[in-house]
Design a protein around this nucleic acid. Sequence first.
DNA 1: TAAAAACATGTAATTAATTACATGTTCGAG
DNA 2: CTCGAACATGTAATTAATTACATGTTTTTA
Lengths: 194, 194
Amino acid sequence: MKTTGFEKEAVTIGQRNRLQYIILGLLDQRPQTGYDLTKAFDNEIGEFWQAQHSQIYPLLKRLEETGDITHEVTVTGEKLAKKQYQLTPAGHEKLVAWIGEPSPELTALKDEFILKLYFIKTVDDPRLQPMLQEQILLHQRQLRHLQHRQETVFTNQAAIDQAYGHYLILDHAIEREQHYVQWLERYLTPRKDS
Amino acid sequence: MKTTGFEKEAVTIGQRNRLQYIILGLLDQRPQTGYDLTKAFDNEIGEFWQAQHSQIYPLLKRLEETGDITHEVTVTGEKLAKKQYQLTPAGHEKLVAWIGEPSPELTALKDEFILKLYFIKTVDDPRLQPMLQEQILLHQRQLRHLQHRQETVFTNQAAIDQAYGHYLILDHAIEREQHYVQWLERYLTPRKDS
DNA sequence: TAAAAACATGTAATTAATTACATGTTCGAG
DNA sequence: CTCGAACATGTAATTAATTACATGTTTTTA
């Protein structure tokens, strides 16, 4: 691959760019604009992946160049032009291929609290208990948020059957937060009543 | 901050650069070389943060410029010069300040398997069960690895007392993997005996 | 009806992080 | 004594991701 001299002409997308697959997956559900895709990260996708519009718009352009998506312009009102993107057959294949690939990598979790904990050397460090308390509040809040999402999104069995994967990951996230809180509470020393 | 004209002269390190604190924290334990720090990511730190030497060496240079660390050169054998880095009082303060700050952000977990699951729409999708099986093997392996680490690193109470935070995060990681495997197994449909 | 919020789309600058390039030394095993 | 593994330190190129800059339209609400 180093001797052909053609590599620079190819529109290449980094192998580890997983955002592109999220975009393909979202567009597989229905045609959407860049704005719509951006909004999706405020809602369900936001629970497990983050992206801003400044990353999405350029990527849409690249995906169109690689032939994975196309767009058509629709005009709302007098002059506001929206670009509705949709998958091409090639884009759909690419999505299916990605889902079918093995996922042999462990999550690279980058939890700042865990990082700080590592540098707490002794059980009686006065910073430990306040840190645990802060994290309990944080994760209890996240747990309530996730439970609320589950209650509002999956109100009946039909909703679960139509978006089973989404149901699974929300269920997984809820359990993860429950266990996180339980773990934190186990190491929290109750404060004395004064 | 936008009108002084002096900003460009300051050596600034991005606010979210948490690798610098890992380096400060590791150097707080004992003076070390860039190579030693890199090795630390192959071992315990590697469980929850990743960095290559190509990121570490330039950062050591910047931390020295900002006055957080200093180094002295020691020669091994005939001519191999090692740079032993150590914290300055300013660097120590910076580490302490960071640990003392609140950590109000949730982990941005970027789990490719979870991402793929989101796009599985129905319970009878033939890709689902193989995906669950693959992840069970992956997380069982990780669980065994973590348990082995715990058994070898924390062989007695004294070891726990000296590195309590490390003990906590290893304990946390083990429980997280246990729950992950349990969760996966719950959705795994047993294969029929043929 | 005026203002604010939401809709809509982009680029620029910077930083973080990975992969590849590049070089040389020391130590231990065979 | 030689060869390979581990020690040791850097830079370059690329990609990913965030924050800031930049502009304009439509809809809702006060």
